[in-house]
């Protein structure tokens, strides 16, 4: 049996190291990445529920994720987590600290946590995060939670990998305004007001309720939590379950999957084309003219 088949079998049998190795191979685009991804257990991959958890730094995403892990574990579910943190645009380095809040589950073999850096790629992150989600799902994890800071575009794209998304907020951080102006309300299915013991939590909840009402988006849920001591987590998980069921029945889940698969496919195309295009451009033009748009057009025209 060759190395990749061994990995695939390991993933299926929930072997921690094989799962981890497979994710590295895919993330680094090493030989065999394609072979692994194309032979994953497609039943598991298609059935798994993918949850997106996003929100500004410091609102309690990782703590909330930790609390959700505990809840799902109490139900006997095997949980996967992809925790995304930014890479430095200058050095390419990253400090991945989300795991700190989840270390309580470190010895639980049915909680698989993988930290990922954005690696400053133009796109591409979505592709490798999507692949990692699939590997976790193929190892029997459901739900798989993708946790990411909800600020740049690439993070929003990751969130779209999810079947449903929760946006975490906390009082006193100006998030009520952020939520209204940044279009985040459109992406999130569940708005979570965390740290409800802090002053301003009720105001924030009410403002969100009225914003949701004004938007005519009745389908959105608002949940209140205090993740640090598991308050409101059961209700939140209940809302997730309900929406998940609803989306599976009314076709919304399939529709979203199609959109995100389409996006991921295009990203892979661009990823595969990038080195080829760079090479071609450098061969054709020593100094690129100051009109990159038309250079790009003619480059692609020649290609087609």
């Amino acid at each position: 049996m060759d190395f990749h088949q061994q990995l695939l079998q390991g993933i299926h049998n929930r072997q921690p190291r094989d799962i981890a190795r497979a994710i590295s191979i895919v993330e680094n685009n090493l030989p065999g990445a394609g072979a692994i991804l194309s032979s994953l257990d497609s039943d598991r991959v298609n059935q798994a529920t993918i949850l997106g958890v996003t929100g500004s730094p410091g609102v309690g995403k990782s703590t909330l994720t930790g609390a959700l892990i505990s809840f799902y574990r109490s139900q006997g579910k095997r949980v996967g987590i992809i925790a995304v943190d930014p890479s430095s645009p200058l050095t390419g380095g990253a400090l991945l600290g989300d795991r700190i809040r989840m270390m309580g589950h470190a010895l639980d073999r049915d909680v698989v946590v993988r930290s990922m850096a954005t690696r400053g790629r133009l796109g591409g992150l979505c592709a490798s995060a999507g692949a990692a989600v699939r590997i976790l799902a193929a190892s029997g994890c459901s739900p798989v939670i993708i946790e990411t800071v909800g600020v740049g575009q690439s993070e929003m794209d990751i969130v779209r990998l999810a079947d449903l998304t929760m946006m975490v907020m906390a009082p006193g951080m100006g998030d009520e305004i952020q939520a209204m102006k940044a279009g985040l309300l459109e992406v999130a299915d569940i708005l979570v007001v965390n740290k409800i013991d802090y002053p301003g939590a009720e105001t924030l909840t009410m403002e969100l309720e009225s914003a949701v009402r004004e938007n005519g988006r009745q389908n959105k849920r608002i949940c209140q939590t205090r993740a640090i001591d598991n308050r409101g987590i059961e209700e939140l998980a209940g809302a997730v379950d309900e929406l998940d069921m609803q989306f599976r029945q009314n076709g919304e889940r399939d529709r979203r999957k199609q959109v995100s698969l389409e996006r991921e496919t295009i990203e892979w195309c661009i990823d595969f084309l990038r080195p080829f295009l760079t090479d071609k451009l450098r061969k054709e033009q020593k100094n690129v003219s100051s009109d990159p748009r038309s250079v790009a057009q003619s480059l692609i025209k020649n290609l087609l």
Partner: peptide, 13 residues
């Protein structure tokens, strides 16, 4: 320091 030198560092606390 490792981050600034281009490593991806997972810190466990």
């Amino acid at each position: 320091a490792l981050r600034d030198d281009g490593f991806e560092v997972v810190y466990t606390g």
